[in-house]
Design a protein around this nucleic acid. Structure first.
Length: 364
DNA sequence: TATACGTGGAT
DNA sequence: TATCCAAGTAT
């Protein structure tokens, strides 16, 4: 074979990312995940959808046990749709972003009612379901049905922004990044391509110290060539939330129960369970804290516990002062409240901030 | 377009 | 310790 023929068989020097290189990398290095079909096997749309909802803004490690719990408890979308919302919220407790749980339940019911219990193999129909947005419709569509779509998550944004040195900051750059990512979509293996893209971002093209030497696209990466890959993606500065304060009241009844209530239907931690407390404000006055205490027929002697419970929400940090009180057996709960067994708290729909409060009061 | 919406782990 | 950020969506 002469030199000219050898040259023509050699891979041409690429100037732009070749999806085939990413797929070849994926075939060797794909992660094994509970919701991911084995190589060559077909993914269950219900399992893909469930995992994608849980994975929104949530790490793979955190999702693992919740995913297994949900799939065991509700193996099909029909089973999930038939469950009471409260059961779903209790199972979701601790995972955060509780609107996801409410939408998960609503979506399951919509799939049963609108689509006969079968997830639609259609991007627009998926996108129309509760809790399914641009990302998730593309993820379920590509992974479960091999529809030609690219789910653009934080991983993909990072990879694309580095490959092409996208100067526009996020989140304004989202449409441009989606365009760039979608332009790379190969004619086949959409689902593998989507998962490969995300795997690459999660394991190689990491936020800090990316392993560029192991990247299948290292030779076509604009920022890699310049050495400023860690400066991407560009991001608009975000303002930090202001500290808020509040009081929480842990009321123990002598028969081993604690007073709980449900949070309002909308807003922060909507429809989740909590102990009674004050509003959470910037200018909370410790002297008036007891104004927010629940009232009973008997007078309660409140014990202000030492220390406080600190918790950080996405948009503000919270410091709660905890008060402990005791009431006699037979005391009636105030309106909206109920007495819950202390040894059954694990099964309540308590967000973690409330678990911290209860732990602060009871683990002593 | 900007903001509300949880939590935990990595650096 | 402080900051970032993780398979985003709804409004």
């Amino acid at each position: 074979m002469n030199v000219a023929v050898r040259a023509s068989k050699r891979k041409k020097a690429e100037t732009r990312p070749d999806p085939a290189d990413l797929l070849a990398w994926y075939d060797r290095h794909r992660r094994v995940l509970p919701w991911r079909a084995l190589k060559g096997q077909r993914a269950d749309p219900y399992a893909v959808w469930l995992s994608e909802i849980m994975l929104q803004q949530t790490t793979v490690k955190t999702v693992g046990p919740y995913y297994v719990k949900f799939l065991t408890k509700w193996p099909t979308v029909e089973a999930l749709a038939a469950a009471p919302l409260d059961d779903v919220l209790r199972a979701w407790a601790g995972l955060g972003y509780y609107a996801r749980a409410r939408n998960l339940h609503a979506c399951a019911r919509a799939v049963v009612e609108r689509h006969g219990g079968i997830f639609p193999a259609d991007l627009d129909a998926l996108r129309a379901l509760p809790g399914i947005g641009d990302y998730t419709s593309a993820a379920v569509g590509s992974i479960a049905f091999d529809l030609p779509a690219v789910p653009v998550d934080g991983n993909v944004e990072r990879v694309v922004s580095r490959l092409f040195a996208v100067e526009q900051p996020l989140p304004a750059a989202k449409p441009a990044m989606k365009q760039l990512a979608t332009a790379l979509l190969p004619p086949e293996r959409s689902g593998d391509f989507a998962q490969a893209f995300m795997d690459l971002g999660a394991t190689i093209c990491s936020p800090k110290s990316p392993a560029c030497g192991l990247c299948p696209w290292t030779e076509v990466c604009v920022t890699r060539a310049r050495g400023d890959q860690e400066a991407f993606p560009r991001k608009a500065p975000k303002r930090e939330g202001k500290q808020r304060y509040g009081a929480a009241f842990v009321v123990l009844r002598d028969d081993g129960r604690v007073l709980l209530r449900q949070r309002p239907e909308k807003g922060l931690l909507a429809q989740m369970t909590e102990v009674p407390g004050s509003d959470w404000t910037h200018d909370f006055d410790a002297d008036t804290a007891l104004d927010a205490a629940p009232s009973f027929k008997v007078k309660v002697k409140w014990q202000k516990l030492t220390g406080q419970v600190d918790h950080v929400f996405t948009h503000f940090p919270l410091a709660l002062t905890v008060y402990l009180g005791h009431v006699p057996r037979g005391t009636v709960a105030p309106k909206g409240g109920r007495w819950a067994r202390i040894d059954g708290l694990a099964d309540e729909a308590l967000p973690n901030v409330m678990r911290k409060v209860l732990s602060h009061a009871l683990d002593r």
